[in-house]
Amino acid sequence: MRWGLDDVTVRLGGRVAIIGVTLPVEPASVTVVVGGDGAGKSTCLRALVGLVGVEEGSVRRPSKSKIGYVPATAGLYADLTVDENVAFSATAYGLSGAELKGRAGRILGLVGLDGVRDRLGGQLSGGMQRKLAVGMALVHSPELLVLDEPTTGVDPVSRAELWRLISRAGAEGTAVVVATTYVNEAARGSAAMLLEEGRVLISGAPEGIVGEVPGTLGRVRGVSQPTAMSWRRGADWRVWAPTGDLPPGVTRVDPDLEDAAVIAALASEMAVSS
């Protein structure tokens, strides 16, 4: 493990925010941390970049000047122009002169904001603001890029643009960590981790996660008696048999990441209640 969290527990205001979380983060890869609001995603990311102390476990991170971090809110200055925002970020990381100019120009091209360099940050659309914030975090070519929910509330076109930037950073050698509430975004990276109530439910390569779902999963049009082991997917039902066989009339299906996530959460609930 080059960077990451090793068996980390963080307590915030007397409450355990994350417990025993191991999150390996490798160069030239994108790691996706998935969970609902309050699951502990931001705490993992903040522990990784050093914004919160850990109670137990250890954290490996590069020096501060080699980290790029974008929090879930803001990440830019509304009353500075696009150009000024990038220049401010670059200056803060010790860039100046021709190097600053060159890097800033390249970043604005990469994030597709060359055309609006004089516009105030606060006047950009939500999607453009997120792209600018990612650009600002990339301007000093960090070894570790940490993005907290860059795509939340963003329309699909901007979302695709943001993922293009994220993958590009990974493809160019950066170790990237992205938090999201959208389970389908877990497939975007080379590794994913699903968090719920501060605990890791599942982690690993996306193809491994769907390949290692326990039990048998099925699909059926209607169920007469919904059980704790069944849930809706569109007009259909999913039925999960943790051990034995599926009930008659239920067609076996291969789980996708969303199914895997629901099953992991169900299994964890069963373990807690038993």
Partner: peptide, 13 residues
């Protein structure tokens, strides 16, 4: 939006 996978499945139910 913002709900974990199991919470989502139950809401859709």
């Amino acid at each position: 939006s913002g709900v974990g996978p199991l919470g989502r499945a139950r809401l859709w139910q």
